[in-house]
């Protein structure tokens, strides 16, 4: 599968370079655009993993919505043309980023990626079992129903709590903005 390898390495390099550019560029607007590029390429990596739904949602939410939010924030920032001044949070940020990276690497290493249980694959035994080839093919030929089942049946409570939280955040933002009017 040489073609997949080539696609993966191209995207991996672009991801790392553009992610580095987000941190290193002085121009805040360009840094935000590099962040969008990173989101896009990560979506491409999801496609390589046969997770099309995740890829499209990544583009829709991150490249389409979150980035617009960031750009609006930049537009409303004063003195944005002076660039991105360095401040004393450099080392605390480094520590935090290193901790986050360690956590992610730990999760990647500790997880047994060869498992599918009944939540992912209907009809499989309740306890986790080793993934069979047909099982994996069943799940990854169309991931949308699997994700839907997980989100709206097995994890419906956290899902709904998250949406209530977002609603509360929207109402809070509205309340903050309207305060000045009265």
């Amino acid at each position: 599968m040489l073609s997949l390898d080539m696609a993966f390495w191209t995207m991996a390099v672009v991801t790392v370079v553009s992610a580095a550019a987000v941190v290193l560029l002085k121009d805040v607007f360009r840094a935000a655009l590099c962040l969008v590029l990173t989101f896009m390429v990560v979506a491409g990596l999801f496609v390589l993993l046969s997770a099309e739904f995740l890829a499209v949602v990544q583009v829709l939410i991150y490249a389409g919505a979150i980035s617009i939010l960031i750009i609006f924030a930049i537009m409303l920032t004063r003195d944005v043309h002076q660039g991105n001044p360095s401040n004393r949070f450099r080392y605390p940020a480094l520590v935090l980023a290193a901790l986050l990276l360690a956590a992610i690497v730990l999760v990647v290493i500790k997880t047994d990626w060869n498992q599918l249980d009944s939540r992912v694959l209907p009809g499989a035994p309740t306890e986790a079992v080793g993934a069979t080839e047909t099982g994996v093919k069943n799940v990854f030929s169309n991931t949308t129903p699997v994700i839907a089942r997980l989100l709206l049946r097995d994890f419906v409570l956290p899902f709904e709590v998250a949406s209530v939280l977002l609603l509360a955040a929207i109402l809070g933002a509205l309340a903050l903005v309207r305060e000045g009017e009265g």
């Binding site: 099309e52 739904f53 499209v56 949602v57 583009v59 829709l60 490249a63 389409g64 919505a65 030929s141 169309n142 949308t144």
Partner: peptide, 13 residues
């Protein structure tokens, strides 16, 4: 298999 979502996502760009 996510065709219509693809269209929405691409137009958002």
């Amino acid at each position: 298999n996510i065709g219509i979502l693809f269209i929405i996502a691409v137009s958002a760009v």
